[in-house]
Nucleic acid binder design. Structure first.
Length: 108
DNA sequence: ATTTTGACTTAAG
DNA sequence: GCTTAAGCCAAAA
């Protein structure tokens, strides 16, 4: 596994419950600023589904993308709501549910 | 090794 | 406000 993916998964697992992170945000923390797409691809690869909460990763706009499990986006959204993530209609309320970069950086 | 694609993001129309 | 175009990184073909 590439260090990139390993780092991405690590940050994804670092996302606290009831919070969500954007692909671009994770990408920037990984070190590859514009690797948002690459991050998403790794989510799709998702070697450890239950271990990597890819459902806590959303688009920069809070929109839920990808996720083909269960009912797809619906399941992902429901899952996030179950974790306490606030929603703005069909999108995630990043203003309240977006995890701070520091949390993913390990700086708490 | 080159080309294409992709769970993205930002800017312009 | 929504749609289209360009940019970026990494992986698969």
């Amino acid at each position: 596994m590439s260090a990139f993916k390993a780092h991405v998964y690590d940050l994804t697992r670092a996302i606290p419950k009831g919070k969500v992170a954007t692909y671009g945000q994770l990408a920037r923390m990984v070190g590859s600023k514009g690797a948002a797409r690459a991050v998403g691809m790794c989510m799709r690869t998702n070697p450890d589904a239950p271990r990597t909460p890819c459902h806590r990763v959303v688009a920069a706009d809070g929109s839920l993308t990808g996720y083909s499990a269960g009912e797809g986006i619906k399941t992902k959204k429901a899952m996030l709501q179950a974790e306490g993530v606030h929603f703005k209609g069909d999108k995630v309320d990043l203003k309240r549910s977006l995890v701070p970069d520091a949390s993913l950086s390990g700086k708490a």
